Computed example of a mutant assay.
Amino acid sequence: MKKILVCGMSQNLGGVECFLMNYYRNINRNKVQFDFLCNSESCAFEEEIKHLGGKVYHVCARSKNIYQFYKDVNEFFSNHAKDYDGIWVNKCMLNNIEFIKYAKRYNIPKRIIHAHNSNNMENTIKGKLQGLLHYIHRRSIHKYATDFWACSRDAGSWAFPKEIMKGENFRIIHNAIDSEKFRYNVDTRELYRKRLGLTNSFVVGHVGRFQYQKNHEFLIDIFKSIYHKNSNAVLLLIGVGELEDKIKEKVHSLSLDNAVKFLGVRNDVAQLMQAMDVFVFPSLFEGLGIALIEAQVAGLPSFTSTNVVPQEAKITNLLHYINLNESAIAWADTIVDSQAIHRELYVQASMDYNIKSAASKLELHFSNICNK
């Protein structure tokens, strides 16, 4: 059995966390076992991880106490590095690559860095500093990692130099999902629409953390235009984040309080998607956008940003690209016109995005690289 130390889990129930758990639930754990190293006091899915046989280790966050962070990390790797065949570090940007550095220092033989985004997630002074660190580490990451993975070529290009992208150790790992879980179900749709008071509504959906990348301000502008065309329209926002209060203020200023529902973190996203009529995702940048894969498999007409969301996200003809230079009214016109599109009863994800087959491939990748 191969033992892999996985880094990238946080206390937030986000895209990377769900991606990792999708694979952990479906991989053959008699052949490949994951343990998780988290730089937070708690970890998403921690109890489930333990139930599945994995261990969860915690170190202090570097942003909280830099001295304690390095002390904890050094102590962990000095005690546990010998237990692992490989380390799999999942990052949205390379501002902090200490786990992969310590893995090399303490001789973990295979060291995988996995890119999950295609741009800087914060448009702030802090974000610009993180961006500077990202570009510095991008030039030196080859000194520490042995293998380079990404969710799309766009994400790979953001994280790795061209030489790595062309090399034999670069690989695309698809953000696979449980297709059956998202399969369209009329009974679930009716139940959730009734439960949420949406029986006669045109339901617009969005799943994403409230942060700069997800472009919620423009999403609200789009919905305002949709609402002006159809007063039965309702917007479901699933997620939390640092910009949530700001978006709530904007919703209130536009007198849309009764038409926008903030649902927070949910463990029933698949069921909520059944209640939706369309899915809108106007991101400023994306590594892939796993929510778009889920929405298409749920049979939802989906709308996202041209030249921003990678073409790999288009697994069906249900995904439509619109330029961010277009006005909110233009987006709304296209979305409202989609009411004529027949909701697909079932969309089968391609084998690349089907978690059963993708988990088998990942298991093989781990076996191959750990046997080199």
Rank of each mutant, 00 (worst) to 15 (best):
K3N: 09
L5T: 15
Q11D: 13
G14F: 01
E17S: 14
N28D: 15
R29W: 09
K31I: 12
N39K: 06
N39E: 08
S40E: 07
E41W: 03
C43G: 12
E47H: 11
H58L: 07
V59H: 05
R62G: 01
N74C: 00
S78A: 14
N79W: 02
A81N: 12
Y84A: 11
D85E: 10
D85N: 14
W88Q: 15
N90R: 06
K91I: 05
C92A: 13
E98P: 02
I100Q: 03
I100W: 07
I100S: 06
K110T: 11
I113W: 08
N123L: 09
L132R: 04
Y144K: 10
T146F: 14
D147K: 09
D147E: 12
F148M: 03
F148G: 04
A150T: 12
R153T: 11
D154K: 05
A159I: 00
A159D: 00
F160I: 01
M165L: 15
F170M: 11
I173S: 13
R189N: 09
R195H: 15
L196G: 07
N200H: 05
G205W: 02
H206K: 05
Y212T: 06
N215W: 10
I226D: 04
S231V: 04
G239W: 14
K246H: 00
I247F: 10
E249S: 12
V251Q: 09
H252V: 05
S253H: 02
L256A: 13
N258C: 03
N258Y: 02
A270Q: 05
L272V: 03
F279I: 10
V280N: 10
S283M: 07
L284D: 01
L284T: 04
L300G: 13
S305M: 10
S305Q: 05
T306F: 08
E312D: 14
I315D: 13
N317H: 01
N325Q: 09
S327V: 03
A328F: 15
D337Q: 11
H342P: 13
V347N: 08
V347M: 06
A349E: 15
S350K: 10
M351G: 12
S357E: 15
F366D: 13
N368W: 07
I369P: 11
C370L: 13
C370S: 14
K372T: 13
